[in-house]
Amino acid sequence: MALNDHTAFVMRDRNWHPDPAAAGYKTTVLRAPQQALMSIQTPSVSERSGPDFGAMALGGNDNDLLLNYRQDAAADGLPIGERIQVFGRVIDQFGAAVSNTLVEIWQANAGGRYRHDMDSYLAPLDPNFGGVGRSVTDAEGWYRFRTVRPGPYPWPNDPNSWRPAHIHVSVMGPSIATRLITQLYFEGDPLIPRCPIVNTIRDPAAVETLTARLDMPRSRSFDCLVYRFDIVTRGALQTWFENA
């Protein structure tokens, strides 16, 4: 097989990403590697390629968290909480659309409780809310979810640590080199600057890029508010074609 993929990517700026060993987030202390990462100057097909999810069969409500865990549709049950839409574009660092890429989200319910066997927070589960969604971006890189705004919740780090309201967001991009998992925060949340996990990011400008903005013009009258969250993956570079 010849090298069939000549795409390389803008190098990852690891000073912009969170510090892997940020002692304020205590779990990193035993989990952050201590050796330097080994740099690969000549990435191979293994690093440049990745799965394309454009042909993946998704369920009709996979991106609608208001409906995809409804226990009794006939009883008109809907999740409790503030109805919102979260939408945005996945683009690369040069502004090119990242189409057909898988965007997956998960979140707590409006009370700050996750539907997970390991979450025992005293806020109740919502019988009509699962908290998981997935979507594949369209040709222009757009994605969209409908959900409820998650609640903040306490977690065992400092004696009184609270996570700001957030949605976990996973995006694949065109290669395993562009793979990314992050968290979406909501503008105006006073817990953002107090959060040890947010504060693993050194540059406040980087935190700003994780803060979804209220999109009032697109908000639906008597239905839901809309938040905009664009995701930027590493820029694709065309490299010289080598006769291998």
Partner: peptide, 23 residues
Amino acid sequence: YLPETPSQTAGPYVHIGLALDVA
């Protein structure tokens, strides 16, 4: 050029989104 979206931990409840049976 745009900066890449910064990473954040997948957290302890990653399974809800990516490995549903474990959650």
